[in-house]
């Protein structure tokens, strides 16, 4: 079968600084692709290009065989099929949780309010937040906010979900509650592209791992191979640096990922 998402030779630069160089990927339905690499390697830019938050300079991106990159008028129709969750949750602070969840389905998809509400409640219950429908995001913890953000993206029934370092801003004890939701979605067959620094989680969730460095795809392998017998020296170095110096950013240390129930 043909891939649901095809990224063909895309390049992207900011003011002559190349960020992505000739990156190609493809992804089958139900697959989870994890993108890893050092900070500034272009991982986030790749995701932002896929759903059109950034214009690509060259190459093309296809969703189910249809070109979605380049200047186009109804980008919002494409985005309805591609969900995205950010590191900083970006819930709408002036809306209660339920209104955050209903906005997309009602205004963008034109669903009846009652139906949207029911679906939202069902999804909220699934991530353990059924009792939070009526509160403002401000009153939620970071982990709760990120779970709401995941629900908000899922309610659009996207064909692909893009997750951009969704645990990087969380306190360590909240990382696992969010990652468990993602593992759950993966088991359900959600097609996802995930950028993460949580290596154990990456290994558990991925069907394919892509290692990106300096805007280039350096290695692409299934997790069993990538994490245990990486084929390139650069991937080896990256994984080693990870073991000894978990991260530079002010985000949760890796030590905590041990608590995640990893078995799919």
């Amino acid at each position: 079968m043909s891939a649901i998402l095809q990224v063909r030779h895309i390049s992207k630069g900011f003011e002559q600084n190349p960020v992505l160089r000739d990156v190609s990927l493809d992804l089958d339905e139900g697959q989870v692709l994890v993108v890893v690499g050092p900070s500034g390697c272009g991982k986030s830019t790749l995701l932002r290009c896929i759903n059109g938050l950034e214009q690509i300079d060259g190459g093309e991106i296809l969703l189910r065989g249809e070109v979605i990159s380049g200047r186009r008028k109804n980008l919002h129709l494409v985005r309805q099929k591609i969900g995205m969750v950010f590191q900083s949750y970006d819930l709408f602070p002036h809306m209660r949780v339920m209104d955050n969840l209903m906005l997309g389905p009602v205004k963008a998809l034109g669903k009846p309010k009652e139906q949207a509400r029911e679906e939202a409640l069902r999804m909220l219950a699934r991530v353990g937040l059924a009792d939070k429908a009526g509160v403002y995001p401000r009153t939620l913890s970071g982990g709760q906010r990120q779970r709401v953000a995941l629900v908000r993206a899922m309610l659009m029934q996207p064909e692909i979900l893009l997750l951009d370092e969704i645990t990087a801003a969380l306190d360590p004890e909240m990382v696992s509650e969010v990652l468990n939701v993602v593992l759950d979605l993966a088991r359900d067959g959600m097609t996802m592209v995930i950028v993460t620094h949580e290596m154990r989680f990456a290994e558990a969730v991925a069907d394919q791992v892509v290692f990106l460095e300096d805007g280039c795809v350096v290695e692409r392998n299934p997790p069993e191979i990538f994490f245990h017998r990486p084929e390139t020296d650069r991937a080896k170095r990256f994984l080693q640096s990870f073991d000894y110096a978990p991260r530079k950013r002010a985000a949760p240390p890796d030590t905590n990922t041990g608590e995640i129930q990893c078995a799919p």
Binding site: N51, L53, L75, H76, L77, R79, Q80, I82, G83, M84, F86, S88, D90, L91, F92, P93, H94, L103, G104, K107, A108, L109, R152, A153, M156
Partner: peptide, 26 residues
């Protein structure tokens, strides 16, 4: 925040919808 606009667009809202429901009230 700029990211508010992106978040609105990421759930498939058009720019005018994003401005109306997400940006302007704040």
């Amino acid at each position: 925040d700029r990211t508010q606009r992106e978040a609105g667009e990421c759930i498939g809202l058009t720019l005018p919808q994003t401005v109306r429901y997400v940006v302007l009230p704040q």
